[in-house]
């Protein structure tokens, strides 16, 4: 790129037209599937809207109602539980696994395959398997506990256990992140690690002083993407907690997450205005979380390319 010939741009308008022509699907897509729906959603959030009748303006009523909605509070708390506890546990686990895989162990591609497989299998198919593993009476996990003389656990029936169960299961879906971290670890310059070796640094010191700073952009990227993703946590909990009657959320709503409650309000009760208000609060939370992450990103070390 550096050697490209500097020439004057005589056809500025022409190149603008060509450029816009190429990206026109993106422009149309952005307007149709992002900008317009965002605005529309904001409007709906101030209305009473059940799809069949046209929206009726109610001002801040939906937002006020959310303040008194006990179930909404539960969904909010459960979601924060997942973002503040589940996510750090998962990222730490994924990072440790990537570190271990990076010790140049033999059979790396086999391990890589094993860790990655759950990430590409359809979520419903694999969650259904966990539904069976978690089964209180006949499940394999309680059988394992039985083997060690332990009492069975109500993985999905005891409200105190449901979220830890979800976090436990979530570790199984970490393969994608493990591989992202592993690829990042391979990008850490070997020369730095070797010179640290010469200086007599041990593995922990090397990890702390070289690997982590070098990895920080990858960690930061993963953190941002994960925070946004965990705020939208849906399918796993939906499949694990839904009943024959069509309800979802698990015992005492202990598995009711933000996106689930929003879905129920929007598509089962058709309270579109109310659900839109929830969507906007979610949007605000995601924006604030991202802003906080960027504001506190002083620990991220960008190595200069040249």
């Amino acid at each position: 790129m550096a050697t490209s010939i500097k020439r004057r741009e005589p056809f500025r308008w022409r190149s603008l037209a060509i450029g816009l022509a190429f990206i026109s699907p993106a422009v149309v897509g952005m307007i149709l599937f992002a900008i317009w729906p965002i605005v529309q959603s904001l409007y709906y959030s101030f209305t009473d809207f059940n799809v069949l009748q046209s929206p009726y303006w109610v001002g801040w009523e939906n937002y006020r109602e959310l303040l008194d909605d006990r179930v909404y509070g539960i969904a909010l708390r459960n979601t924060f539980y997942m973002v503040l506890l589940g996510l750090p546990i998962h990222l730490l686990f994924d990072f440790l696994m990537a570190l271990l895989l990076n010790t140049k162990i033999r059979g790396l591609s086999l391990y890589r395959t094993i860790f990655y497989l759950p990430s590409i299998t359809p979520v419903v198919a694999s969650t259904v398997v966990w539904l069976w593993l978690f089964n209180g009476q006949y499940g394999a996990l309680n059988a394992l506990l039985h083997l060690f003389g332990q009492a069975p656990i109500g993985w999905l029936t005891n409200p105190a256990w449901t979220k830890p169960s979800l976090i436990f299961m979530g570790a199984w879906f970490g393969g994608n992140t493990i591989l992202i971290f592993l690829a990042g670890l391979r990008d850490v310059p070997a020369s730095l690690l070797e010179s640290a070796d010469l200086d007599g640094a041990n593995a922990l010191q090397k990890t702390w002083h070289i690997t982590l700073p070098m990895m920080s952009p990858v960690i930061f990227y993963t953190l941002i993407v994960s925070v946004i993703g965990y705020f939208q946590y849906f399918t796993e909990a939906w499949v694990l907690s839904s009943t024959r009657e069509g309800a979802a959320g698990g015992p005492l709503n202990s598995m009711l997450f933000y996106a689930m409650y929003l879905y129920q309000n929007a598509f089962q009760q058709f309270k579109m205005g109310y659900a839109s208000a929830q969507a906007w609060i979610l949007f605000a939370m995601v924006l604030i979380a991202t802003a906080i992450l960027f504001r506190t990103s002083g620990w991220v070390y960008y190595r200069s390319e040249d």
């Binding site: 729906p37 965002i38 959603s41 939208q232 933000y258 979610l282 949007f283």
Partner: peptide, 9 residues
Amino acid sequence: LPAQVTMIP
């Protein structure tokens, strides 16, 4: 952008 924001419109 969370999918939930655009989902309803």
